[in-house]
């Protein structure tokens, strides 16, 4: 038996919003520790890794490991049926071929359940080693979203260059070029609004704008985003979801040939 209850369905709605442009289907792996999802996008240049810890749920029970292959389009349709203040419970029997979503309004006057067929997905899982990155940049997630949106008007790629002076985001295209420089926040009063740069070695890497824009669909999950970079390895864009877990996006850098 698997049962996971969240007081706010909005978290699950936002998680789905954050992955549905990249993935059409995904496997939710549930065990004692919580719910995990790892999947590559169709073109296999980006990877999404989601963790929702068991202790972040209002109620969590998982007697046996459960693997639920879900069509994210169908899941989106179902979650649209939940009010933002509704609680949501996901339930599945052991070895079941369906999952049930139960939505309850705050006053318990409306209870709805939606059963969805599960899919047998044969998806590749990649082993991502614990990595020490040369640069990590923390910044307000809304600022990162704004920059990606602004720069993607000019070019298809964004060059991210991190040095001890700060971090520079650049692009160029038919109409011209654009550069945005961010310096580390001088005095941190509000952590959510700070830009914090940790750099062991300077790094410059190029990434596809389109994917960075997909990642920023997670903005509403967290006030801050963390970018981790090392030479010649994928960028990690991490949104920490308060009290429950994180969503991480990995993106392979572009390479000049």
């Amino acid at each position: 038996m698997f049962e996971a209850r969240l007081l706010k369905s909005s978290i699950l709605k936002k998680v789905l919003e954050a992955i549905k442009d990249l993935l059409t289907q995904a496997t939710f792996d549930c065990d004692d520790n919580g719910i995990q999802l790892q999947a590559m996008d169709n073109s296999h240049v980006a990877l999404v890794s989601l963790l929702l810890r068991a202790d972040g749920f209002d109620k969590y029970r998982c007697d046996r490991n459960v693997t639920m292959g879900m069509n994210l389009g169908s899941m989106t349709k179902i979650l649209k049926c939940a009010g933002d203040k509704d609680t949501v419970t996901m339930k599945a029997q052991d070895n079941a071929d369906t999952v049930t979503f139960v939505f309850e309004s705050p006053n318990q006057e409306k209870v709805s359940d939606y059963e969805m067929k599960l899919m047998n997905l044969d998806l590749e899982h990649l082993g991502i080693p614990e990595t020490e990155y040369s640069c990590t940049i923390r910044m307000p997630s809304a600022e990162f979203a704004r920059m990606c949106r602004d720069l993607s008007q000019f070019g298809e790629s964004i060059v991210i260059s991190c040095t001890k002076e700060g971090v520079k985001f650049s692009t160029s295209g038919d109409i011209g070029s654009a550069n945005i420089k961010l310096a580390q926040t001088a005095s941190i009063d509000k952590e959510d609004e700070a830009v914090i740069i940790e750099m062991d070695e300077p790094v410059t890497l190029t990434f596809a704008c389109q994917y960075l824009n997909y990642f920023t669909k997670a903005t509403s999950l967290s006030p801050q985003v963390q970018l981790s970079m090392s030479a010649d390895v994928p960028l990690v864009v991490e949104y920490r979801i308060p009290d429950i877990g994180h969503i991480r996006y990995y993106l392979a850098p572009k390479i000049e040939e």
């Binding site: 240049v45 990877l47 190029t206 596809a208 994928p234 392979a252 390479i255 000049e256 040939e257």
Partner: peptide
């Protein structure tokens, strides 16, 4: 010409 590597070129398949 820019090329984009695949995830699998960086991380091993489990």
């Amino acid at each position: 010409v820019e090329r984009q590597d695949l995830m699998k070129e960086f991380y091993p398949e489990l």
